[in-house]
Design a protein around this nucleic acid. Structure first.
Length: 355
DNA sequence: AAACCGGGGAA
DNA sequence: TTCCCAGGTTT
């Protein structure tokens, strides 16, 4: 394969001028004068950034660093505190793996991330991408970082005529061949910045691209046709009831979902089974004088849409087996977004009925 | 290889 | 609306 060094050089030169300023990032100038990244910061940001956009992550990242300045603090925190701080960010398995990973790093590695790829890959929540990101950005080691940006850039550079998911081996070999001999972290971040600012999924800004002359998609006018999309399955709708209950003392009734599966480990209102059919059995979790509200909420998950009718009741005494929390001072932000919608309708309406 | 797993922002 | 995002894990 022909020497690609000139491509990395152009990217790094572009990055020196166009690097985004991000809370977890060491700027190219600071990096050059020897300021070292904090692998804990890099790990935390990378976990949060999995399938999640930069601007959504920023406030969560700042909040975590402020609450838990070191990985030892994460490992020592209560699980519920971490889950509450993660609420709203989605993909909650990431938070559960974050906790597991922090405990392993503290126990087995004295609180310092290993640099070895093989050891990193054994950590929960750390796969090929995150391992390479920690190694290159966190430790300035050589590693091939391939995320959605890199895959898209490479598929265009070489005009790959199959969807990205079917070209992973080819993308990996090209990506390997493009990695420079130094500035591994800056190079990885340069690719991400190029992907987010120039080589965007739709309408890439090829005229501003520092490597457009090296890009086969650009030189052949195919930039907007690559990468080829994958066929998508139509989303189904699931239906159910969500049960909002206030006790006489204005406590709300919640439960914590099991650790595995959808919204695992999160606080939730009790709900019925979610079925593909609108023919629902009204099957409340406990005895009460239930009122079905006119309102329902809709929510979009990655693989299905959900529509829940909201039901509420007032009871004297909380049934056992549930979490009972004063609605006054309740931190709405502790709920995943779906449950926030239910809270906003069900609890507000229940309180209004009192007056 | 494909499904599962949230939520939001850009176009 | 549609798309897809600094993916990992399980099936």
């Amino acid at each position: 394969m022909r020497n690609n060094v000139h491509i990395a050089k152009k990217l790094l030169k572009w990055y020196d001028v166009n690097a985004r300023n991000l809370p977890w990032r060491i700027s190219p100038i600071d990096s050059q004068i020897g300021i070292k990244p904090n692998p804990y910061h890099i790990w935390l940001s990378e976990i949060m950034l999995q399938q999640t956009t930069v601007n959504v992550v920023k406030p969560y990242y700042e909040s975590f660093i402020s609450k838990w300045p070191t990985i030892t603090d994460i490992a020592a925190a209560k699980d519920e505190e971490i889950m509450e701080a993660w609420a709203g960010l989605g993909y909650y398995r990431r938070a559960r793996n974050l906790i597991k990973c922090a405990k392993i790093v503290v126990k087995d590695y004295k609180g310092l991330f290993p640099k070895d790829e093989h050891l990193l890959l054994k950590l929960p929540g750390v796969g090929t991408y995150t391992s390479a990101a920690i190694r290159s950005i966190g430790f300035k080691k050589k590693a091939t970082v391939i995320d959605g940006n890199v895959a898209r850039i490479i598929s265009r550079l070489y005009v790959m005529t199959k969807p990205i998911a079917l070209s992973s081996k080819e993308i990996k070999s090209h990506a390997d061949s493009l990695v420079p001999t130094k500035r591994f972290g800056d190079y990885a971040q340069a690719l991400m910045d190029l992907g987010s600012q120039i080589c965007t999924p739709r309408n890439p800004k090829c005229s501003n691209c520092p490597i457009n002359k090296d890009c086969k998609a650009f030189t052949s006018g195919l930039s907007n046709k690559i990468p080829y999309p994958v066929q998508k399955k139509a989303k189904q709708v699931r239906y159910g009831y969500a049960f909002v209950t206030l006790t006489k003392n204005n406590n709300i009734i919640l439960e914590r979902r099991p650790a595995d599966g959808l919204l695992g480990g999160m606080l939730c209102f009790p709900s019925s089974e979610w079925r593909n059919s609108q023919e629902l059995n009204f099957d409340p979790p406990f005895e009460a004088d239930w009122h079905v509200l006119n309102e329902s909420i809709t929510h979009v998950f990655s693989h299905f849409n959900l529509q829940l009718k909201i039901v509420h009741s007032r009871i004297n005494l909380a049934p056992s087996g549930y979490l009972v929390m004063p609605v006054k001072n309740f931190n709405r932000a502790a709920l995943p977004s779906l449950m926030r919608k239910i809270f906003d309708i069900g609890v507000v309406q229940s309180l209004a009925d009192l007056s």
